[in-house]
């Protein structure tokens, strides 16, 4: 049975995005749109997976999505919630540093700050009072099972704990958007389970919460994401493989009726096969 949902306003639009480092073009003409998904009686955020073989420009795309690198051409647009809607539409703005949270593969944190201090620091521009910040930080620490390590430094935490702290930090600072570069690499099975629960916490925390992540675990991507993009080198007119990364396939798991299922099914398996063949062909 398909799960009912509605697609509302655009929450992320990538328009003709190209990025070059000097003469070297890394990604070219990347285009995609993600809309706010609404489900009855549940806060449903968006989970987008970006898959692709190594060197196809996933990390570069992520740096552009987070505003850490300026596009050579094209733009990344998100709704500007600081402005009032006009004609029922939220005005859009180009993404800037800090608008979109970013958790890298190493779960980088400030090495000289305790977990509590790091999270409080992430809230420094929120405009909230000291007591409100403390309450908010403690709420997250308890909810994410980190209250016992709040006075520890990053190098005293396990990989899983570091990842959770890095995610909360970005949630507190950036709001609804979160980009995670290979969040499951280097984690053991228990920590992967914790990371999946973290995804659920974010996803169901707010309608507008949007996670964009990359992984080499295709099965896991089909289980977690509601939208999957495959990045690769496109086939050129002469049949040869190009050398610049772009989006080569999109799988809308909502439309396919696979998204948000609680179990891994035969449909997931079929999709995995299709994704694998798209990846190998690009």
């Amino acid at each position: 049975m398909n799960i009912q949902y509605e697609e509302k306003d655009i929450i992320l639009q990538v328009e003709n995005l190209s990025i070059s480092y000097g003469e070297k073009v890394i990604i070219r003409d990347v285009n995609f749109i993600e809309r706010n998904v609404v489900r009855k009686e549940i806060n449903q955020g968006q989970v987008v997976a970006v898959l692709g073989r190594s060197g196809r420009g996933k990390s570069t795309l992520f740096r552009a999505l987070t505003g850490l690198v300026k596009p050579s051409s094209g733009k990344v647009l998100i709704p500007d919630y600081s402005q009032a809607p006009s004609n029922g539409m939220q005005p859009a703005k180009e993404v800037e540093e800090g608008d979109v949270g970013f958790v890298d593969q190493k779960y980088t944190l400030f090495r000289h700050k305790t977990i509590y201090d790091s999270l409080t620091f992430a809230l420094r521009k929120s405009g909230e009072k000291g007591s409100e910040k403390k309450e908010k930080v403690m709420k997250y620490l308890i909810e994410w099972g980190l209250e016992k390590v709040k006075d520890q430094y990053p190098n005293e935490l396990s990989g899983g704990q570091r990842q959770r702290v890095a995610i909360i930090e970005q949630l507190l600072s950036s709001g609804h958007y979160m980009v995670l570069d290979e969040p499951f690499s280097g984690l053991d099975i228990g920590n992967i389970q914790n990371a999946r629960q973290s995804f659920k916490l974010i996803e169901n925390g707010h309608d507008l919460n949007t996670i964009i992540f990359s992984t080499h675990d295709i099965e896991l991507a089909t289980e977690l994401a509601d939208s999957i993009y495959v990045m690769g080198y496109p086939r050129l007119d002469d049949g040869s493989l190009g050398t610049v990364g772009t989006i080569v396939r999109h799988f809308d798991l909502k439309a396919l009726g696979i998204a948000w299922r609680t179990e891994f099914t035969q449909d997931h398996l079929e999709l995995v096969k299709e994704i694998k063949s798209a990846m190998l062909a690009s």
């Binding site: 740096r63 987070t66 850490l68 540093e97 800090g98 979109v100 949270g101 970013f102 890298d104 190493k106 980088t108 944190l109 400030f110 090495r111 000289h112 620091f121 992430a122 521009k125 930090e169 970005q170 600072s173 950036s174």
Partner: peptide, 29 residues
Amino acid sequence: PQEEIDHARSLKCNRWEILWEVIVKGRFD
């Protein structure tokens, strides 16, 4: 590492804050 600079940037640190947090305070030891 560039990751530490990017991490500070993703937390809305301006360039002077990055200098202070990552380089000055972050490497005082």
